[in-house]
Nucleic acid binder design. Sequence first.
DNA 1: AACACGGGGGG
DNA 2: CCCCCAGTGTT
Length: 352
Amino acid sequence: MSEKVMIFSEVKNFTQDLIDWQKKLGRHDLPWQKNRTAYRVWLSEIMLQQTQVSTVLNRYDEFLKIFPTVERLGAATVDEVLAQWSGMGYYTRARNLHRCAQSVMTDHDGVFPSDPKVLESLPGIGRSTAAAVAVFAYGKRAAILDGNVKRVLARIWGFDQDLTKTLHTNQLWSHAENLLPHKKSDLIAYTQGLMDFGATHCTQYQPACIDPQKGSCPFKKSCVAYLSERINQIPLKVKKVKVEKIDMTWWVMIHQDQVLLEKRPEKGIWAGLWCFPESQELVKEPSQAMPAFKHVLTHRQMTIKPIKVHLKKRVRLQENQQWFSLNDVGGLGLPKPMSLFLKSLDLVRDGE
DNA sequence: AACACGGGGGG
DNA sequence: CCCCCAGTGTT
């Protein structure tokens, strides 16, 4: 048994059902669905990469009016292109759009290539966009796999692997290719159907299977995510916690064998635990920077910079502060780096 | 406020 | 391969 079959069980007639669905319930009147030249298709795909259909609808015709051909676009200045793009965000797209137009003019005799692999070599065109242009403009047999399509395929086949992993996304790519219709005449309806079904029915939140207002889902009977009540878990994208880098100062105030500690607020990091004060302004005794060290938490990488001050008298600067003998700190609630640090203080003291 | 999106670029 | 980024719109 091949790997493909093990991962993606048979969903009967998916391809044909989707084609039928598209013909009946898909979108047929979007401006870029008429007169599907490579230039028009390409422009719409780039605009749609990170921008909603409703926004692109307001911009597409205007853009084409100003840059009616790939030649005119390539001949424009990048500033003119950026000006026309303004408000749509991700301005790298506009710069690549311009570069791509120039490359089509100089490297491809002014004609967009039809081979997805060649399209993919152009600026701003990745695997999915290349396939879309090849299908819509040239009727080629190529698979798209954008965010909408990933959601549709992952849900129906119950593919619950982490899609931030290249391996799993590649498995989905293979699956997308296996699903392509064999009749070339079906490719446009099929590809458009994938896009439309994902955008209007198999939406991220409240898809049609649980929201009748969106219509009915033709795949309800076989959709693994729906049948196993995992619509909200699939597709799975494990977001890596962003590790924030933080510098923290510890004022290590020492008087004889005692240190001044501060009970931290009940909210935030190390809530309610005892720590060195992170700031102080009143004490003017000479201070000495100690070696900084790192402490790593799930979501933070802290660089702790202790500053030692030997005080002649015990002062308490705030209500939440208290002096402790080093012999007693062991009984306090201390965050990990505090207990490690205090132990090292002990060693220093013993060594003295 | 958190999340979603395709592609590029650097390590 | 992995990570990070960019900007607007949606939930």
